[in-house]
Design a protein around this nucleic acid. Structure first.
Length: 496
DNA sequence: AAAAAAC
């Protein structure tokens, strides 16, 4: 009984379920849960598990760190168990549950959870996302999996390559749905949804129920049960939020100083730009703090390596863009630092959700320069309370590119680092990591396959029309505004 | 404004 948890749909099950035993989950699932060290369901789990088991659609609002993944994974595994079989034939393992996430890291993490919870069952699962070789994924799909976790783009790629058939999907999870819409995934989602059987169970999780999310739900969910667990972090007393007023040019030094003064062993530092993240990571490293950047311009291998090393405790500061703001399950961070205040106040809440998890206390420390006042005001408005503002006197500015050599190193011994090429400020020829010159190709210029935009079964008239029309219209739907796309779904368009 | 995501 916690007063920080408000439920819009309090059920008897939610009140009564104090252990996982009471949901009627199979012994094989319960064994995996208890081996993972969990004994008591979180509020979202207590609410969602019975609803999902009953086969209902769900519209869920829950933050990371609330146990959201298990709240849908456990009952989905349970519902698939009667169909599980031990046959080696791929045909006996069609994809029956599909889970979509906005980022690759999140997909990987959800997949790890599903793998854990299903390990004592015959069910198979795998994950597909971009940035890595398709072939191992195709091979895993060919062998057959009941549960597939994916990011939308690579999923469609597999469908197009005919390495994946979604015709037998019975359960669909849209995780971080608001994020997916923010990222422009609506066209991809529409294509995917058109490939799924109409008869299915759909679970949509979102941090907010914006009008766009509500429209999406109205289109693709059937009589969903709404489950809402209050956003824990904005009101969470165990996260202390402090804003430090600093000059923009002092920010790097401020981060180093905060890490030292507070003796932070592990911290995530959020930046607003990829270049800024790479730059800060370099400055911190030069200052004797083991740091690595994680952002979308790094290769998938580098991203995974950075995250793994951080989880293993080998890295003190993970300098991240908002690729790491949501969903990532990094246990019990004592603090997060906002190097920049996010442009989107919603992202602030997600960022600081990386600390003070599961009852542990944490600090959310934000740097605010003179030109970030508006962001600060927006955040205070969103979380409905003023933040504690302190002035930070930066005593030992971190060295930057071009810093004079007479500045003293902040720490006696400097960690070994791989930028040995940078002996002095004179060598400027090399491209900095994080600049886009050697990054993987970006953009989605390929014309959208008409197949995906049509309803599931092609009509003979459509094939005839194709013969008559020499040049199909090539319009990049991903460039259309959200309202237009929602309008294309038969949704009311906002009048201007 | 910036970030994320398929070859």
């Amino acid at each position: 009984m916690s007063d920080s948890v408000a439920t819009t749909t309090p059920t008897e099950q939610a009140k009564a379920a104090l252990t996982f035993d009471q949901f009627g989950l199979s012994a094989d699932i319960l064994r995996a849960v208890s081996e993972s060290g969990y004994t008591t369901p979180t509020p979202i789990q207590a609410e969602a598990i019975p609803v999902v088991l009953a086969g209902r659609d769900v519209m869920g609002a829950a933050q990371t760190g609330t146990g959201k993944t298990a709240s849908f994974s456990l009952p989905i595994i349970q519902r698939l168990l009667p169909m599980a079989n031990t046959s080696a034939s791929p045909a006996r393992h069609p994809v029956r549950a599909l889970m979509l996430t906005p980022t690759r890291e999140l997909a990987d993490q959800v997949a790890a959870n599903v793998q854990t919870y299903s390990k004592h069952t015959p069910l198979r699962s795998t994950v597909v996302f971009g940035g890595v070789d398709m072939n191992p994924q195709s091979e895993a799909l060919r062998r057959g999996v009941e549960i597939l976790i994916a990011t939308p783009g690579r999923l469609l790629d597999h469908v197009q390559q005919k390495t994946l058939n979604l015709g037998q999907v019975q359960m669909l999870v849209l995780d971080e749905a608001d994020r997916m819409l923010d990222m422009g995934f609506l066209p991809d989602l529409q294509r995917i949804l058109n490939l799924l059987p109409k008869e299915r169970q759909t679970l949509l999780f979102s941090a907010t129920f914006s009008p766009e999310i509500k429209k999406l739900a109205a289109t693709y969910l059937r009589n969903p049960q709404t489950i809402e667990v209050a956003r824990s972090n904005s009101t969470n007393a165990n996260v202390r939020q402090i804003v430090y007023e600093v000059h923009e040019s002092d920010k790097s030094g401020a981060v180093a100083q905060i890490i030292r003064e507070r003796e932070l062993k592990q911290v995530i530092v959020f930046c607003n730009s990829k270049i800024g993240a790479s730059r800060l990571a370099r400055v911190l490293e030069r200052d004797g703090i083991v740091a690595t950047a994680i952002h979308g311009d790094r290769t998938q291998g580098e991203r995974m390596q950075a995250l793994d090393a951080f989880k293993r405790g080998e890295i003190e500061a993970l300098v991240a863009t908002d690729v790491a703001a949501r969903g990532l399950d990094i246990a019990e961070l004592p603090a997060v630092i906002n190097f920049d205040l996010p442009f989107n106040a919603e992202d602030y809440v997600h960022r600081i959700g990386r600390t003070g998890r599961a009852g542990a206390s944490g600090d959310a420390l934000s740097l605010c320069s003179a030109n970030e006042r508006k962001q600060l005001a927006d955040i205070e408005k969103l979380i409905k309370r003023p933040l504690e503002v302190q002035t930070l006197h930066v005593t030992a500015p971190a060295r930057r590119d071009g810093a004079r050599r007479d500045e003293r190193p902040a720490r006696g011994e400097r960690t070994e680092h791989r930028h040995s090429a940078r002996e002095d400020a004179g060598s400027r020829r090399r491209t900095s990591p994080g600049s886009s010159s050697y990054d993987r190709p970006r953009g989605r210029q390929q014309p959208i396959d008409e197949f995906f935009l049509k309803p599931y079964e092609p009509s003979p008239s459509a094939m005839k029309r194709q013969e008559e029309t020499p040049e199909p219209e090539r319009k990049s739907t991903s460039k259309q505004p959200l309202a237009a796309l929602l309008g294309g779904l038969g949704m009311p368009r906002k009048t201007s």
